[in-house]
């Protein structure tokens, strides 16, 4: 009885820590949706590209922190690129073509990654110590702790920048009322581009903290977009704290159901959560209009 409970608790903690990475990816949705009313349905692929970029930089013998920063820069550039190529035009024409376009950019990213880095999964080196820490019989590995610290750290930094820099306040103004922001001399397009760059940066960073746990491969992000999407829909638009809670809950449930029902059921909670959320609160992430069209 007691050992079984301990095993479950172990699963929940491991899953919950991974869930904080889902929350970080979902945070990227929140950022671009607030500023520009669109999200990147290829966000998971940005996570994967970020992880590969980090891996390539560290194979080039750069120190860990330099590789991670490089990956974040690549992610920021990719986020900016997705907005410029796939989103801006569709939104200007007031249609939802960006949904399809961002999915296509994501698919393209997967095949590009297969061509550049190959299909097989690779380990992601980290400077963290081997072994695990024990708390009350539950063991936590260093890479898992790094996920928690990294996700919390990045989200806190971005939130602070939004509140305490003029650029951040301007981005909030564009989210609140784009026309009024323009009347204040704020270039709303630049503010939206900035949000996409930050969103891409957090996705790539998520890649570098997930990869040490899951390994790096072109399909590592296959279900990540969906999971992050579920988290974002459940937590809604305004609260990054809500994202963390929803992410932790999803990660934990996922792991537990994989453990109890067999690994084939791991993905089930995310889907069920998404269906329930869309059914019970259709205003969720997107407002009614777009849900109808998807």
């Amino acid at each position: 009885m007691n050992t079984e409970f301990l095993a479950l608790a172990q699963m929940a903690v491991g899953g919950g820590l991974m869930g904080m990475a889902y929350a970080l990816v979902a945070y990227g949705f929140q950022l671009t949706h607030a500023a520009g009313k669109a999200v990147n349905f290829g966000q998971g692929e940005l996570v994967m590209l970020g992880a590969f970029a980090g891996l390539s930089l560290s194979t080039a013998a750069l120190p860990y922190w330099v590789s991670v920063s490089g990956a974040m820069a690549v992610g920021a550039a990719l986020g900016w690129f997705v907005e410029r190529t796939a989103v801006r035009l569709a939104l200007q024409q007031r249609n939802e073509g960006w949904i399809l376009l961002t999915i296509i950019v994501g698919l393209f990213a997967v095949s590009a990654a297969e061509n550049i880095w190959g299909r097989e999964d690779k380990p992601f080196p980290t400077p963290w110590p081997e072994g695990a820490l024990e708390f009350f019989g539950i063991s936590v590995t260093w890479p898992e702790l790094a996920i928690a610290a990294g996700a919390l750290g990045i989200m806190t930094l971005v939130e602070l920048a939004k509140r305490y820099t003029m650029a951040g306040i301007a981005v909030q103004a564009v989210s609140a009322d784009q026309d009024a922001a323009e009347l204040c001399g704020i270039r709303s397009r630049s503010a939206i581009s900035l949000s996409w760059a930050i969103s891409g940066m957090s996705a790539a960073f998520a890649g570098t903290i997930i990869a040490p746990v899951t390994t790096v491969g072109p399909t590592m992000a296959a279900s990540l977009t969906l999971k992050a999407f579920s988290v974002a829909v459940v937590a809604g638009l305004d609260s990054s704290f809500g994202l963390l809670l929803a992410g932790i809950a999803l990660g934990a449930t996922e792991n537990i159901s994989g453990f109890l029902l067999g690994s084939g059921w791991r993905e089930a909670p995310g889907l069920i959560l998404l269906i329930l959320a869309l059914a019970l609160r259709p205003q969720g992430l997107f407002g009614k209009k777009i849900i109808r069209k998807v």
Binding site: M166, I169, A170, Q172, A173, A176, D177, D179, A180, A181, L183, C184, G185, I186
Partner: peptide
């Protein structure tokens, strides 16, 4: 009016001077 509803009064005023 179109004030920035979720922001504070002072932030609204600062945004006026944004450029």
């Amino acid at each position: 009016r179109h004030v920035f509803v979720p922001l504070s009064v002072e932030e609204n005023l600062l945004l006026g001077a944004y450029p």
